[in-house]
């Protein structure tokens, strides 16, 4: 679907800005609800993520001693802006991306990494011991999943012969679902996305039973709220990218909802299925298995072309 929207509307309301924020909270709710249902619980009501954010925004923000205040306030904004910007290059809600240029895939991926990077820096910025350990883990994890995730998304890009998201999307719509032709890449990308979002079982950077909230321990109020929304938007963008690349593209909003919803169901199931991995297990698994699989597929694709 392709509707021309004035740039300001695209930026502030749809598919950027407001739409992203609200859709992000809806996806967070759906994720929590699904995990709850998988665990035979009832789960939160639909407004819970919004209520959480509103409550956090209303709360006092405590700036701990010994932090750089500019970084402390700035990093959450950077994280949120990064993910919001990334959303402009993906076929959000089944619409054509608001902005598109050759190579925007790479830009999007880096913008998505900004989130974790900011989190890591935010943790390293404080003197709190839990934050420091969490930051170390978050950054370690960033380096371990980034490469496989990138490679897994390059698979469809190579098949489509373009590094422009809209082209890959268009290619995917006209061909077989790439989850069938490139199942390995799909798997690696899915797990990579979960690692990126620090969803269980890859949540050791913020394992609450070990290091409280990891890098986020010292955040309260607004900063924490921004990080949370940023994460929600990142979930949305990640799912959109995956659906566009591997699930036959996103031609219209209905397809968007169905495909990302289906993906969310799978990620929620994976979240509830496993015991948290230790950081050494996460990293080991990635470098030993994830990257090898992704590489193998990449070579195969490059060879077949």
């Amino acid at each position: 679907m392709n509707i021309e929207l004035p740039p300001l509307v695209a930026l502030l309301f749809f598919p950027g800005g407001l739409f992203l924020l609200s859709a992000g909270t809806v996806y967070e709710w759906a994720d929590r609800k699904l995990v709850a249902r998988f665990q035979n619980r009832i789960g939160p009501r639909w407004f819970q993520p919004v209520a959480d954010v509103v409550k956090l925004l209303a709360k006092e923000e405590i700036v701990p001693d010994g932090v750089n205040p500019v970084l402390f306030h700035g990093l959450p904004v950077v994280a949120l802006v990064g993910t919001l910007t990334a959303a402009l290059y993906v076929p959000m809600a089944g619409m054509a991306p608001s902005y598109s240029f050759t190579g925007d895939l790479i830009v999007t991926l880096y913008l998505l990494s900004l989130m974790t990077l900011s989190m890591g820096l935010a943790g390293a910025n404080t003197l709190d011991r839990f934050s420091l350990i969490g930051a170390t883990r978050a950054l370690t994890q960033l380096f371990s999943y980034e490469a496989p995730f990138l490679m897994a998304l390059l698979g469809p890009a190579i098949a489509a012969g373009s590094w422009q998201i809209s082209h890959v999307d268009a290619y995917a719509q006209g061909h077989w679902w790439m989850v069938l032709t490139q199942p390995v890449g799909f798997l690696v990308a899915l797990v990579g996305l979960m690692g990126k979002l620090e969803l269980p079982p890859f949540d050791s950077p913020e394992a609450e039973t070990e290091i409280v909230a990891g890098p986020m321990t010292e955040y309260s109020g607004r900063g924490w709220a921004l990080f949370r929304i940023g994460r929600d938007v990142e979930l949305l963008v990640g799912l959109t990218l995956m659906a566009a690349f591997y699930l036959g593209g996103l031609a219209n909003p209905i397809e968007f909802v169905l495909k990302t919803g289906g993906l969310l169901l799978v990620t929620a199931a994976l979240q509830s299925l496993f015991c948290r991995l230790r950081i050494d297990q996460t990293v080991g698994m990635w470098w030993r298995i994830g990257i090898l699989l992704a590489l193998a597929q990449l070579f195969l694709l490059a060879f077949m072309r």
């Binding site: 709850a36 249902r37 998988f38 035979n40 619980r41 789960g43 199931a269 299925l273």
Partner: peptide, 9 residues
């Protein structure tokens, strides 16, 4: 977990 998806919480 797959059974629970179709059960009442």
């Amino acid at each position: 977990i797959s059974r629970s998806l179709f059960k009442r919480p």
